[in-house]
Design a protein around this nucleic acid. Structure first.
Length: 261
DNA sequence: TTGATTGTTACCGG
DNA sequence: TCCGGTAACAATCA
């Protein structure tokens, strides 16, 4: 479910209803009992996204850190409380709303210093104002790894997931197997800016949309993406090739995305 | 019931 | 020490 846009959207949605409030933090199925107890009754001072990580800061310096992995979900609803749906790991209750977190791969309480090391480990986030793209470019320019791996490496740059990876490289005419050192600064800038633009659309529309005039299709990707999951390149009508990088599918048009010579 | 999936981390052997 | 590969984990739906 989540790429970076999902988490930024969640931060934007739930931040205003949690920040400034003393929260009831609870672990309905007892699978986050200690962590919930540590935060229960504390005041939330802010919610933010860092790449695919959600961070809820509390007074005293502790922070709740959520990562949804492949399947996790965050649901919010207005009070009154209802029975948790499915396996709810942690539930945050403010004066007006409930936020349930299902299926995260990471759900933990971080101290101030642990939070600081998370910020050190995660690369610049294409959706954050404080991001420094040069930090990402410096890593890429030194690497022999394929760009298809690098732009999805959250320590290089944060936010891009598997679908955006395919879509961005196709839009920018870059073959995923191009090595980092072969990527010129101007090309990197196009990739970065496109990522920022597409993810921002994702936040606004709450969906992955990488084409200019999406129709209201109800199919899974429908007409919202260019080549992810497709058989034919919409630009040149050549068949789309399916690759695998780090065990994840990547789609490429060998015609539009020329390999470096 | 099985398989696939918008992700990450730990561990092991070379 | 640094890789690459593999398993583990999460929840839901077709």
């Amino acid at each position: 479910m989540p790429e970076g846009h999902t988490i930024h959207r969640a931060a934007r949605d739930i931040g205003p209803m949690l920040a400034g409030q003393t929260l009831f933090v609870n672990s309905p199925q007892g699978r986050f009992k200690d962590g919930a107890a540590r935060l229960n009754g504390e005041r939330c001072v802010g919610v933010e996204a860092l790449g695919k990580h959600l961070i809820c800061r509390f007074t005293g310096g502790d922070a709740l850190n959520i990562h949804l992995g492949l399947f996790g979900r965050i649901r919010k609803r207005k009070l009154p409380l209802v029975e948790p749906r499915g396996a709810v790991r942690v539930r945050l209750v403010s004066a007006t709303h409930v936020v349930d977190v299902n299926g995260p791969t990471i759900c933990r309480v971080l101290s101030q210093s642990e939070l600081a090391s998370l910020f050190e480990r995660i690369g610049p986030d294409v959706l954050r104002d404080d991001a420094d793209p040069t930090r990402a470019f410096n890593r890429i320019a030194k690497s022999r790894a394929p760009i298809g791996r690098l732009i999805m490496d959250q320590s290089v740059m944060a936010g891009v997931g598997n679908i955006y990876r395919t879509e961005i490289l196709w839009r920018q005419y870059v073959h995923p197997h191009t090595t980092g050192r072969e990527i010129e600064r101007a090309v990197f800038d196009r990739i970065w800016n496109d990522a920022a633009r597409l993810l921002a659309i994702g936040v606004r529309r709450n969906a992955i949309i990488t084409i200019d005039a999406p129709s209201r299709s109800r199919s899974r990707f429908g007409d919202r993406v260019n080549i992810f999951g497709k058989d034919v390149c919409p630009r040149c009508r050549q068949p789309v090739r399916r690759l695998e990088i780090d065990g994840r599918r990547v789609f490429v048009c060998e015609e539009c995305q020329r390999r470096p010579t």
